[in-house]
Nucleic acid binder design. Structure first.
Lengths: 220, 220
DNA sequence: GTTTGTGAAGGATTTCACAGCA
DNA sequence: TGCTGTGAAATCCTTCACAAAC
């Protein structure tokens, strides 16, 4: 809030809700490259330089940013540190988020052990399964609990994100349970097209499907 | 698809390869749901029923399919078995593909052990790393080789797909090496925006970025 | 001089709506 | 009857181009 706070001149004070999803999905990209630039000591950057790094047009970057405010200065570009902070705040990355994993088979354990979440502020604070032989065991000091405790855990531990790593056939019912427990977002590793109500975001991680569309271009 | 087998009635006489990427990316979704329908003994399906399953409009499904031919029958819908076979052929999924993994740290080993690739026809036939302490070890009977052998291996083993699981800082140079070795497609797990020439497709798997865009919608 | 922010233009994708066929 | 395939319309997204600001 400190330096040169620029109020959006659009409408009211709260964030506009008509930002296209595609724009929101690019913001983490900007955060990442800006963070790298800041780490290498660069403090101003133009949309053209950002476009070179990200292989996109400067106009798109400027347009994207313009949905949220005016962050640049004509003739100079953007202040790297200020912009990265602003974007993190817009994305809600100026705080940490609690997540749980459902499904502690091979995949769930690999996700639980993945060291990339914590440095970005995503803390895995609970793990669930329905398999009695897994319940009570621990993975990286994270005890595996019965799925029947999920509602209580989500509320007690302020869990906003559910990570689904169960077999395809179980995924929709697990997702229903997460929604019912009051989760806000789901990262789904199960190879299914799952459905959530409008107020719950879901994103799928599906390497097989990614491969299956690339083979189209593998003319041989 | 090779030449000839699909004729479109478009006025433009030249062979049209202009199927939008976004359409190609939805085809694996259709293959998956059609495969499930076939397994449950259903042999005809309408675009409306498919739309219900996939949460998309029937018109979009019909439009997507129309890029490749006329597969349906008015009043009846689509023959499930015939359509899934046709789509698999279009995507190149009527054969198997060899892949290699570069980077056999924690993530690379998890990918190598993932049992979801082989049933879909993606065979991981080689693994590479630069770490001398890993080279010579095996993961699930897959020997880890020196990255310097990659060019030879890609050609000898007919490897079309490279899976990148190295740290961010090493990713672009590994990708350059894969391109140089003659790979056709890359599945990149490293959190970087990497660049490839136009003839090499690349797709990124980045769970952290997926989370970072969902938090935008979690602001309470 | 440089570069932003943004209306307008252009392009891509989705949806509509209905002719045509089983 | 029911449903596909597809031009046209509508919507969404990207790029252009330039006034304004530094």
């Amino acid at each position: 809030m400190a330096t040169g706070s620029i109020q959006t001149t659009h409408s009211n004070g709260s964030d506009d809700v008509d930002v296209p999803d595609v724009v929101v999905e690019r913001l983490p990209l900007y955060v990442r490259v800006l963070t790298a630039l800041a780490a290498s000591g660069i403090d101003m950057v133009s949309s053209e330089q950002l476009g070179d790094q990200l292989h996109m047009t400067p106009a798109q970057i400027r347009k994207d940013l313009s949905y949220f405010g005016r962050f640049g200065k004509q003739g100079r570009g953007y202040n790297v540190a200020a912009l990265v902070n602003k974007l993190k705040a817009i994305l809600g990355l100026d705080r940490s988020w609690n997540a749980c994993i459902v499904g502690m088979g091979r995949l769930g354990r690999a996700i639980a052990s993945y060291p990339g979440f914590a440095p970005e502020g995503f803390k895995i604070v609970a793990a669930f399964d329905t398999d009695q032989s897994l319940i009570g065991t621990s993975v990286d000091n994270l005890p595996v609990r019965s799925l029947s405790h999920i509602r209580q855990a989500v509320q007690e531990d302020d869990i906003a994100i559910g990570i689904v790593a169960v077999p395809a056939v179980a995924a929709q019912s697990v997702i229903d349970a997460l929604v019912d427990a009051g989760i806000g977002a789901i990262l789904n590793y199960a190879p299914v097209t799952a459905h959530t109500p409008d107020h719950v975001k879901i994103k799928n991680i599906d390497p097989v499907m990614s491969l299956q569309s690339m083979t189209y271009y593998l003319k041989s």
